[in-house]
Amino acid sequence: MSRNTPNQPAADTDEIDHPWVSRLYGAMTPMEWLFAPHREYLAADLSGRVLDVGAGTGGMFEPVLEATGGEGIEYHAVEPDETMRKQAIETARQVGLSVDIRDARAEALPYPDASFDVVLSSAVFCTIADPETALEEVARVLRPGGEFRFLEHVRADGWRERGQDLCNPLWNHLAGGCNVTRETVDLFVAHEAFEVLELERVRLGVFPASPFYRGRLRRRR
């Protein structure tokens, strides 16, 4: 079952709420099969304390439950968007996964240092206001030897790159703050706190929100 923790101080979320974006997520449910193998990749062999950064409407919950059976795992999630967070709570209830869902930004995670074994990020860093600070927070809350697993879309090249530059202002407005021009994976792999375990470009997404990469980084000891 899902639970909120109102007694836990939450980071300032500036009343983030995009109801119509949440409805769009719901309308895209029939296309979830496209994401399924990548969500399975993120959920494979999970154990210990896990943090889902920017859980959205709870797209990772069912894959995590299928991969773990809900055993040997303590699952936490943050989601600053009010409508999406409510949907995530309902998703957790429907699939039967126990999740501690908190109202917080990735830039100010309400957890102690080295408190998680795995951090998950699934198409999240495109919307985070300060991705550099958020990555520092991921590194902070991961224990040494822990994993950061991600699926993110990044800046393209060639004519697609120029097209992304042109359409990003409108896309950002319509897609709840999503940016299609970020070099997110470069940011990840360049961070001195991590070593790369796996990194691959995957066949997912359509212009302008493409290409996608997935991977696993290990927190250096």
Rank of each mutant, 00 (worst) to 15 (best):
S115L: 12
E198K: 03
S98L: 08
E198P: 00
P144D: 05
E152D: 03
L135S: 09
S115D: 14
E74A: 08
F194G: 00
G176T: 04
L135I: 14
S121W: 00
H76I: 05
A106D: 12
S115N: 09
D100N: 15
L199H: 05
A106N: 06
G146H: 02
L135C: 09
A106W: 10
G70I: 07
R140Q: 12
N172I: 03
F116Q: 06
L151V: 10
L142R: 00
A190V: 04
C167F: 14
F150N: 00
V141W: 09
M84K: 05
G72W: 14
A92D: 10
E137M: 11
F125M: 15
A88G: 14
R85T: 09
V189P: 00
L97K: 08
T91H: 15
G70K: 01
W159Q: 05
N172H: 15
S98K: 10
N168D: 15
A129D: 12
A156R: 11
A129E: 14
L166N: 01
R155E: 13
L197A: 06
Y111W: 13
E152V: 04
A139K: 04
K86C: 07
G176N: 06
K86E: 15
R149L: 08
Y75Q: 01
P131I: 08
D81P: 01
T184G: 04
E79W: 13
D100I: 14
G72A: 07
A190H: 06
E107D: 09
R140P: 10
A88F: 11
D81E: 14
E71K: 03
E74M: 05
R203Q: 14
Q94G: 03
R149W: 05
T91R: 15
A92M: 13
G177Q: 04
W171E: 01
S122D: 02
E71P: 00
L174N: 01
R162D: 05
S121F: 00
D103E: 15
V99G: 14
A88Q: 11
V196Y: 01
V99M: 13
V196I: 12
